[in-house]
């Protein structure tokens, strides 16, 4: 995987990569309306990272995907999630204090079958985003670390 793959695969990856990212972030952002959510969308975004890693090889990718940055993002996601849980502590832990309050993500939804409004859900939408950030960063760190380690072992065995 040192030099990456052929020109055809690289061209297709550069074409598809953005669409996979957009789809992953769409699944994260619409977690409280449509099927999906933070975990699923984060896994889709991480699969885009894995595709990039397989296509371009570990050496070229390390200037785009920083392991330290992804690690910080992962911790930020989990801390945000726990913070949203703690903010509802006026009633209980994990209380949905934003829903039906009128502010951001706070408008009430129509009861029954409806097309869905993005500005609903309260802490559910915010927690979806936090968990999505955590999952995409966590899976990215796993893929990146293991590929760098495999690369290093291969180089050591060749010497």
């Amino acid at each position: 995987m040192i030099g990456g793959m052929s020109r055809i695969v690289r061209t297709m990856t550069t074409l598809i990569f953005g669409f996979i990212l957009v789809y992953g972030f769409y699944v994260i952002a619409h977690g409280h309306i449509s099927p999906g959510g933070g975990f699923q969308g984060g896994a889709i975004v991480a699969s885009a990272f894995a595709l990039l890693l397989v296509t371009y090889g570990t050496d070229q990718i390390q200037s785009y995907l920083s392991k330290d940055l992804l690690s910080i993002l992962e911790s930020t996601g989990l801390v945000l999630f726990i913070t949203f849980a703690f903010l509802g502590l006026g009633a209980t832990f994990f209380y949905n204090f934003v829903s039906n309050s009128g502010g951001l993500f706070g408008s009430p939804t129509t009861i029954g079958v409806n097309p869905g409004d993005l500005n609903t859900g309260g802490t559910i939408a915010l927690m979806n985003m936090a968990v999505g950030l955590e999952v995409l960063a966590a899976l990215g760190v796993i893929v990146l670390t293991m590929s760098v380690a495999a690369e290093t072992i291969q180089k050591k065995e060749k010497q």
Partner: peptide, 8 residues
Amino acid sequence: QAETAANN
């Protein structure tokens, strides 16, 4: 739907 204002 009424309590959490989310469709899913």
